[in-house]
Amino acid sequence: MEAAAAMDHHDQHESTGIDHRKLGMWVFLSSEFLFFGALITNYLLYQGQPGFARPYPAEIYDIPFTSFSSFALLMSSLTMVLAHNALARHDQHATRTWLLATAMLGSVFLGGQVFEFTEFVTVGGMKLTTNPAASAFYLLTGFHGFHVLLGVLMLLTLYGISRRQGELSEASGLNLELVGLYWHFVDIIWIVIFTVVYLLAGVPAGVG
């Protein structure tokens, strides 16, 4: 009866069978590739140019540390998907636990980034204004970090709603799925950044 009444009210339907918001999220994410692509392109252009004031980012990377924080972000995708799965099984308690775990892992990553930036500036002597490669590095990782921050806030909001209302309703279930999509996307962007910007980083000949 519910469904019939709703159809009657709205006489609207989804031509593709996909919920508006879900389709909208995927469409939005597809445009984010161009956003991060431009940032990575900047970095690739400048990291290999000789003659800048030093240090170049690649000279002062701390690969073990970044590997650790990257790993935290990667594993947060697991906890995110487990939260989603728990909600599908109507296990509200587990949903909350995994949401919180995801937010925590995201915060570990963010904390790592704050630490990394601080180290680079104070110990490594690389500021935003040092050279174009440094500018590109900070802009790229900074914007990624901003995306992670937004994700953590959304996760905490979902957690808060769940705590306050005692459960996540069916409508919120879709919200959780959307936040999950966003979260995984931020993760895959980091997978690319970790490889291209950190592991494959080079300094131009004659530097370092």
Binding site: L45, A53, T129, N131, S135, L139
Partner: peptide, 11 residues
């Protein structure tokens, strides 16, 4: 930042 500052190597 120095993205487009030619003197500092920006392009």
């Amino acid at each position: 930042s120095l993205f487009f500052v030619a003197e500092a190597g920006g392009d």
